[in-house]
Design a protein around this nucleic acid. Structure first.
Lengths: 244, 244
DNA sequence: AGGAGTTTGTGAACGCGAGAACAAAATCTG
DNA sequence: CAGATTTTGTTCTCGCGTTCACAAACTCCT
């Protein structure tokens, strides 16, 4: 692949766009599987669930990969996005905490198929060591540093209970990991230069609950609330019933 | 006052704020467990991992629950936020798709402790029916409508493989569910008035990979790119037409 | 009681992202 | 080959969310 990137083009892709690129990638994969060779921004936007103007603008940050009057070559665009995200290379990943969630993650096929390779599963519980999960043996947490060094691991996944998360994060950073995906609730503190993304299952449900509650209140606009003796009555109404 | 006055006084809480309220809730719970009775916006902001000005502005949408010169009563504020989100009541939830991820979700204690009660686990695979997961029996997917009706379920969780997701969503909506948390990849299409939130594990990793790649390139600003012979794990990603 | 010290709540400035609208570039048609 | 048609890439405008900065309000101390 043309290793000649323009001398520090330094294209700064907006964070909101970066978050959508994987969605486009997935949509393009669907189109490929459906046998589509070419698509317009309208089609792709529909498949990705976004506005076509937004899609075009997002893609414009990567370069001009479309043809006016024609559209995009599905295969070509897919490769360009994959390259931009970095999933044309193989990313070794370690997962720490092999409880229910860790199991699910280790078995999740979406990782491998998207360029992520689980090179190690770690758990502090010695009774789990040696157990095979998705073909990978569970090893002691203390092996972390050696594993990271030997496999050049940059990305770590934390799936431990909350109390252990900060300690695991510290050890990961110490071992040289610079990107962390955290499933444990709570806030992680990490040094400058380390990226953390958090996924909190119960937060998502709570956001849904909020909107659900509003809908229920709206359907009953007499101001009556379920119980809540507390003053400060608020009547929920108005609502742009779309959460994204 | 406030009883049946102008209803347009209803406070419209910004979406970004709604998404942070559960984080504050969690932070307040931590403070309570640590025995803290009162806290300043600085302390709470630190515990929640946000800027204190943002925290104060967020809270101001709920009302004036603090005391100037003093701070917030932890217990009181926690109740107010919980009430606003709606987690003072009990939300029945159904989970569809009891694979690895469904298992993990069913066992996730964070749901119950935050006002969500898993009333049913559904799976299309008959060989799983009757199996107990986290004390709840797995039942046929066709029981959905009856379960939703009998338990007044408003929230559904989809943890099936991607191809089944849209069908499950359709059936959920038909059964009367109006909020969906979707773990399956791909875009769900639902009617107006139904909220969908998506959690995509591989997308989070891809976002991390993008930033990780940037860090690597930045450390080596000569424009060189890693060798990348591109074995491309996924199906034919290969021959990208040509690079102009 | 009054002044000093805190800390909240909010008005205002600012920056980023979303969407509309349009010009540029390619194909198609006669 | 010229004009009509299609669709991209980009510019412009608007609204939302973040952050700053400060007045208001409360406590504490003398």
């Amino acid at each position: 692949m043309t290793a000649r990137t323009s001398p520090e083009a330094a294209r700064e892709i907006p964070e909101a766009t970066v978050a959508r690129l994987p969605v486009y990638l997935r949509a393009l994969t669907s189109l490929t599987e459906a046998g589509t060779a070419t698509c317009s921004s309208e089609e792709l936007a529909a498949a990705a669930g976004v506005n076509s103007a937004k899609l075009r603008k997002d893609l414009s940050y990567l370069g001009s990969y479309g043809t006016r009057g024609v559209g995009y070559d599905v295969e070509y665009l897919r490769y360009q996005i994959a390259r931009e995200i970095g999933v044309t290379q193989d990313w070794p990943v370690v997962i720490v905490g092999i409880g229910n969630l860790g199991h699910a993650l280790a078995n999740y096929s979406g990782f491998r198929s998207r360029g992520f390779r689980v090179v190690a599963l770690l758990d502090a519980d010695a009774s789990r060591h040696g157990e095979l999960v998705a073909g990978v043996a569970v090893r002691p947490f203390d092996d972390l540093a050696a594993i990271v060094r030997d496999n050049d691991v940059a990305i770590g996944v934390i799936a431990t209970p909350a109390p252990a998360a900060q300690d695991v994060a510290d050890r990961m950073v110490e071992a040289g990991i610079s990107s962390i995906l955290n499933f444990a609730p709570g806030v992680l503190s990490v040094p400058e230069g380390v990226d953390v993304r958090k996924v909190d299952l119960s937060i998502e449900l709570q956001i849904l609950a909020y909107h659900e509650q509003r809908k229920a209140q709206q359907a009953r606009p007499d101001g009556s609330v379920d119980e809540v003796p507390v003053p400060l009555v608020e009547q929920g109404l108005v609502d742009q019933g779309r959460v994204s």
